[in-house]
Write a protein that binds this DNA or RNA. Structure first.
Lengths: 95, 95
DNA sequence: CCCTTTACTTTCCATTACGGAAACTAAAGA
DNA sequence: TCTTTAGTTTCCGTAATGGAAAGTAAAGGG
């Protein structure tokens, strides 16, 4: 079990949602995440870049329906950090 | 039960902790909160001011051990906002 | 083969957030 | 009155974020 560790990179609202969406699945398309967060391309792109540079998510470009799409998935490091952050939140709010 | 409502004022790490500390009790001394958060006077003072201006906490100056101390407590509005925010976090992280 | 569309990326810009440090203030006490 | 305590406010610089618009690369259509 991962230890509680507050992570301010993950804490930011949009990035917390990105990690939460990716956590239960193996990967998601950029456009799906964007629709869930209701943010612009540029905003999501910048958060994706930040998470990728921290090695919290991996980005793969692959064809889907014959068009190139971007797929996002949590890395193991990212999952550990995410679960640690969630544990930290639970410690703070007491649950 | 309060409805889930993400509140960015409360979401900030230090302010989330302030609300979480105040939630289960009727009030806490400024110095106690400061010690828990491990922040400087000025930092806590500024967060207290922000929460007070939102009417999320009330501030009372009252003597304690013959010296004037500052007591903090969540207002009802603050409690509603805090619980709503915690509910929003639970919806996001799925628990 | 060029043009357009799609799916992002990057840049530019402005605002706001946040913390450290230091100056400031009011109320007790010595 | 001088000093200490307990905050408060100001000054400062850095970093975070988002909107908008320009840029790019790969398909697909004509």
């Amino acid at each position: 079990m991962s230890k509680a560790c507050f992570d301010s990179l993950i804490h930011a609202h949009n990035r917390l949602q990105i990690c939460a969406l990716l956590h239960p699945v193996s990967e998601l398309e950029f456009s799906v995440v964007k629709a869930q967060l209701e943010v612009s391309d540029s905003v999501l792109s910048k958060h994706v870049k930040a998470l990728e540079q921290a090695n919290y998510i991996s980005v793969a470009k692959r064809a889907s329906l014959s068009r190139p799409r971007t797929w996002l998935s949590l890395t193991e490091l990212g999952e550990t950090a995410y679960l640690g952050h969630v544990a930290a939140l639970k410690e703070i709010v007491g649950l």
